[in-house]
Nucleic acid binder design. Structure first.
Lengths: 140, 140
DNA sequence: ATCCTTGCAAATGATTTGCAAGAGT
DNA sequence: ACTCTTGCAAATCATTTGCAAGGAT
């Protein structure tokens, strides 16, 4: 259970209810698009405006609290900032799941880029396919 | 030198000058956003409409001629469909470069997903950092 | 000859902005 | 108290659509 107020303040942002609700919702769901965040948070905070969600997502990405996950052919989703990991993206239902990074892969990528004078800041491994649930649903 | 007319027909699309010019421009530049494509192609085909670029990009992605490359915090770029590869994305200048896939990485990712009942269709490895040219530019 | 594609203009959808009122420190 | 944030409405920007004319097979 993360303390969102502390997280926000440490990142130099005021701890408003809107922001804490947004973070709580994203952490609960794992990965969410802007409209999904709005639709969820507005349930517990009915006066919330979509513009506020946009402003806060941008701000929290800039301040390193959130990370944008771009997805081929869809709107980007947002997740809490965490250690490097791999995304499994289901092209049927759109769900994104995290998997731990593979150490060897990590090393290979780092050594590849260092040989090139490319100063690596962030790696992003996205695997697109069909998740177990959607495979089961299609089989029936 | 690719024969774009053949490529298009094999993919079930008519070979119009607009499409061939778009493909030629993308291949020449490697990776381009929609507006960049329009700005380039309109030079050689002044009557080109931006809507035509949109329609054709969507169609060519659907038909497997092009691939969309989503990029954190930016508009997506498009590239010709080619073998799996890694993207080096410069966060300073926005340029995208291709590097060959690492076989071991490939195997690891495939074995990881197969253990999970995730049917893998496409992998996407994007490395964000600063390219050699931009590093040099900043140092000066 | 037929069907698909184009270019234009309008429509839609997504995101951003300005500003007065309210909340956080 | 002071400054930053919010919610609203309007503005902007990106993308999609409908349709008549032109192009590809």
């Amino acid at each position: 259970m993360t303390d969102y107020a502390v997280l926000l303040k440490e990142s130099g942002l005021k701890a408003t209810f809107q922001r804490m609700n947004i973070l709580e919702t994203i952490e609960k769901h794992g990965h969410m698009a802007i409209e999904e965040i709005y639709d969820e948070v507005v349930k517990v905070h009915p006066s919330l405006s979509l513009a506020t969600v946009y402003k806060n997502i941008i701000l929290m990405v800039e301040n390193g609290v959130l990370v944008e996950v771009p997805i081929t052919g869809k709107k980007p989703k947002y997740e809490l900032t965490k250690n490097d990991h791999i995304h499994l993206i289901c092209t049927e239902c759109g769900e994104v799941e995290d998997r731990p990074c593979l150490e060897e892969t990590d090393k290979l990528l780092k050594s590849m880029t260092s040989q090139e004078r490319f100063s690596l800041n962030k790696q992003q491994i996205n695997l697109y396919g069909v998740c177990a649930q959607c495979q089961a649903a299609k089989a029936s």
